[in-house]
């Protein structure tokens, strides 16, 4: 495991924990898209089905369990415990527009036409666009709390770091996976606009607000 891969995992973990803590401490999930969180729960569930059949390392297994557990906990906090603070009116992105094309594409373009492989591919495609409901929510309300911005920045950095990891692996081991690579590029590109706003505003101490 190279440093980019490790920092990527760490960044992903930080993002997930920031979100959970934000909701827990403020007792509110306003500004957070429950729909994106449902998509992430689906992503982790379909990707880590090999959890019990395919052992890689203690690190790998524990991270998978932490990601899955945290994503379900987040969904529970939004739709259960702090439901009263959830922004139903603004979180209106139609997730079937992401789920259906990802599923169709996973059936058409995959490495191997087997159930586990298709589900893994589906999770990769879905993850690349799963943040769209959240970005849609931010653009609809025109602003994001600073802590939400930190969450989005950590979550976006994770795939960017994985891209560097794949570049590293390509040159050092000749390893590459086009499905993961192209999806990872799309996923990172979707965050570019946000990265720009984050660096130009949030890091200078201002709240992230979009121009009217």
């Amino acid at each position: 495991m190279n440093v980019f891969r490790f920092l990527g995992d760490l960044s992903h973990l930080v993002a997930i924990v920031i979100l959970l803590l934000k909701i827990w401490k403020t007792r509110s999930c306003s500004g957070i898209s429950g729909r994106s969180q449902i998509l992430f729960a689906i992503v982790f569930t379909t990707r880590y089905l090999d959890l019990f059949s395919n052992f890689i390392s203690v690190y790998n297994t524990s991270m998978k369990i932490v990601y899955i557990t945290c994503s379900y906990a987040t969904v529970y906090l939004i739709y259960g415990k702090f439901k009263a603070t959830y922004d139903f009116n603004h979180d209106t992105f139609r997730i079937e527009f992401l789920l259906v094309p990802s599923a169709i594409l996973a059936f058409l373009v995959n490495h191997d036409f087997s159930p586990l492989e298709i589900l893994w591919t589906f999770s990769i495609y879905l993850e690349s666009v799963a943040i769209l409901p959240q970005l849609f929510l931010v653009s609809k309300t025109g602003e994001a709390e600073t802590i939400t911005s930190h969450y989005l920045f950590a979550l976006g950095s994770y795939r960017l770091l994985y891209l560097l990891n794949w570049l590293w692996r390509y040159f050092s081991q000749g390893f590459y996976d086009l499905i993961a690579l192209l999806s990872g590029i799309l996923q990172t590109v979707l965050y570019c606009d946000f990265f720009y706003l984050y660096i130009s505003k949030v890091l200078k101490g201002k709240k992230l607000s979009l121009p009217a």
Binding site: R47, N54, I56, N60, N165, F175, D177, I179, A180
Partner: peptide, 10 residues
């Protein structure tokens, strides 16, 4: 060597 990502990455 392709299609190994799922085995060791997250």
């Amino acid at each position: 060597q392709v299609a190994d990502t799922k085995k060791d990455e997250l």
